[in-house]
């Protein structure tokens, strides 16, 4: 970390050189409605950044802006600057190459209408992996890491959408890992997953941290507490604060609203 930076701060300038992603003055609008206002935040290398906040606070919108998925949503406008490894993502010439380095896990599992195998093999195929043995190896590795291999190894040829909800969610995690991303965005991944599996995936995420940066949007405050190195609190489009998770949960907050929220005294 750059010398002189606050030990727990989220200030963009502090991490400007070392951070994976730097977000400056990001404002997101849907038509006239402002979903996120003037966000400054950075995502460091090999950290899990937790994002918490009540419904409608702009968490999903933020993730969308990070891999330029706003382009599919009519009326969504993004202002401000986001850099990924120092490159302004608005100015990259091949947005597909950018997206291929960012894995996304959506809140409700979206099993593509493909077989289990093809769901995981798609991203490697897109980047040009052709050899069957190599694909087999990638598919198995990703499914193992997503804690799904044992359950699906005998039915790799059945449709992914026929798996149970929790299995499909792990399939989408495996699919995101198959991209070999350096940034993984998880949007409330445990909504459709049972507690035991959630714990197993959480363990996987702790491991993955060594290889990539992870942004974990979660409605479960305790999940942020268990996993996140730093936690950001969003509230109706306002970035209230970002601090070391341990500090926030021990009550050292800059804004009393953060404390109220994690104590469940809110709204």
């Amino acid at each position: 970390m750059v010398a002189g930076a606050a030990p727990d701060g989220g200030g963009a300038s502090a991490d400007a050189l070392s951070a994976k992603v730097v977000v400056q003055n990001l404002t997101i609008r849907y038509g006239k409605h402002v979903a996120l206002r003037g966000l400054d935040l950075s995502i460091r290398r090999n950290e899990i950044l937790g994002i918490i906040g009540p419904a409608g606070s702009g968490k999903t919108s933020f993730l969308r802006a990070l891999n330029r998925m706003d382009e599919f949503i009519p009326g969504m406008e993004v202002e401000g600057r986001i850099t990924f490894d120092g490159r302004d993502i608005r100015r990259v010439r091949n947005v597909y190459a950018l997206r291929s380095r960012i894995g996304v896990v959506f809140p409700l599992p979206v099993g593509l209408p493909l077989t289990v195998y093809e769901n995981v093999a798609l991203a490697p195929r897109l980047r040009g992996v052709r050899k069957g043995s190599e694909l087999d190896e990638i598919v198995e590795r990703c499914l193992r890491r997503a804690a799904l291999w044992e359950e699906v190894k005998d039915r790799l040829d059945s449709l992914g959408s026929l798996l149970s909800g929790g299995q499909q969610q792990r399939l989408t995690i495996a699919r995101a890992l198959s991209q070999e991303p350096d940034l993984l965005l998880l949007d409330e991944f445990s909504i459709a997953v049972d507690p035991v599996t959630t714990m197993r995936i959480e363990d996987v995420l702790k491991d993955l941290k060594n290889e990539m940066s992870i942004v974990l949007v979660t409605n479960l405050v305790q999940q942020a507490r268990r996993l996140a190195d730093r936690t950001a609190f969003f509230l109706t489009g306002e970035h209230v604060e970002t601090s070391g998770t341990a500090r926030i949960f021990s009550g050292i907050v800059k804004d009393p609203r953060t404390h109220d929220y994690i104590e469940g005294r809110f709204g």
Binding site: M69, F72, Y96, R99, V104, L112, L126, R175, Q179
Partner: peptide, 23 residues
Amino acid sequence: VPDGYREAAEALGATRWQVIRKV
């Protein structure tokens, strides 16, 4: 075809034509 499929495939870094052809 649900939009979620398109979004999921685009998020993988697929081009528009790849999304159409593969998904």
